[in-house]
Design a protein around this nucleic acid. Structure first.
Length: 269
DNA sequence: CTCGCCACCTGGGGGC
DNA sequence: TGCCCCCAGGTGGCGA
């Protein structure tokens, strides 16, 4: 599920339940995630979760002595449930906080649970990340500067987390559609004006996705209710062969970097 | 460096 | 029902 909006909505949903709570126990039922869950994680009982932050698609639980780093991969989800709730086959990890627990479910196990001790160097996975798309740092000028000398298609550029973080496969297509830019365009060919349009489109796309998810926040923190209550209507993603909502031309699907890419050949140049 | 491709894993859906 | 193939929202690591 998770691109940046889903991770951010999850962050907001779990933050209220976690902040200030003492970790009473840790359950690691399956440590074979993308990387093995480090042994230190099993010894976190007694620490207090001070805050829940986000960097790119990583969730960062600040615990004083260090930071619990979680990534949802392709299929991960986090839920706050009453302590003692029965677990399912893919419920790999629980952080128990008194009466409640934070549970990681991840069928494909591309997600991760990591630990960085306070004072250690930044975790290598987070050390080289690019700019946050919703921050002021991302604007037309910055995007223009970053894309100079980049021959890769603009869609591949957007999905490269060393440049810009958080824009995944769906929202890359959606953002380029909003900006009316062909996803195959070599990044360095984009003018400053088009970069400005793209920066705006990325922010609009991500913000509206967060808003759409925010309306279902209650479901994340409640005892049940499904993950993925995002009501946002996709503008192009998954609409191969259907009419472009703007001009009526048939939406095309191509493969770029082994990922499905959708665009309107008439609107996007 | 950059770029394109592969791999990691499980499950769902369509076709036969 | 069952099987087989394709597809899936991420991303580190490889060789060219």
């Amino acid at each position: 599920m998770p691109e940046l909006p889903e991770v951010e909505v999850t962050r907001r949903g779990i933050a209220r339940a976690l902040a200030g709570q003492r970790i009473s126990a840790i359950e690691v039922r399956e440590s074979r995630l993308r990387w093995p869950v480090p042994p230190a994680v099993r010894g976190l009982a007694g620490l207090t979760v001070r805050s829940v932050k986000r960097r790119a698609k990583y969730l960062l639980l600040d615990c004083g002595d260090g930071q619990l780093i979680m990534h949802l991969g392709m299929s991960g989800s986090l839920r706050v449930l009453p302590a003692g709730t029965a677990f399912d086959k893919h419920d790999h990890f629980d952080l128990v906080l008194g009466e409640r627990l934070l549970r990681l479910r991840d069928p494909r196990r591309f997600g991760a649970v990591l630990w960085r001790k306070t004072g250690d160097a930044p975790h290598p996975l987070l050390a080289r990340l690019g700019i946050e798309p919703l921050s002021r740092a991302l604007d037309g000028a910055r995007l223009h500067a970053l894309t100079r000398a980049r021959r890769a298609p603009i869609k591949a550029f957007l999905m490269d987390s060393r440049r810009v973080v958080g824009v995944g496969n769906i929202y890359a297509s959606e953002s380029l559609y909003r900006a009316r830019i062909d996803p195959r365009t070599p990044a360095r060919r984009l003018s400053l004006a088009r970069c400005a349009r793209l920066a705006r489109a990325i922010k609009d796309t991500l913000r509206s996705a967060i808003r759409a998810g925010g309306s279902s926040l209650r479901d994340y923190v409640g005892a049940d209710g499904g993950y993925g209550c995002f009501q946002l209507r996709m503008l192009v993603y998954g609409r191969e062969g259907k009419r472009c909502r703007r001009c009526g031309a048939a939406v095309r699907r191509i493969v770029l970097g082994q990922r499905s890419t959708y665009f309107c050949p008439a609107c996007q140049r």
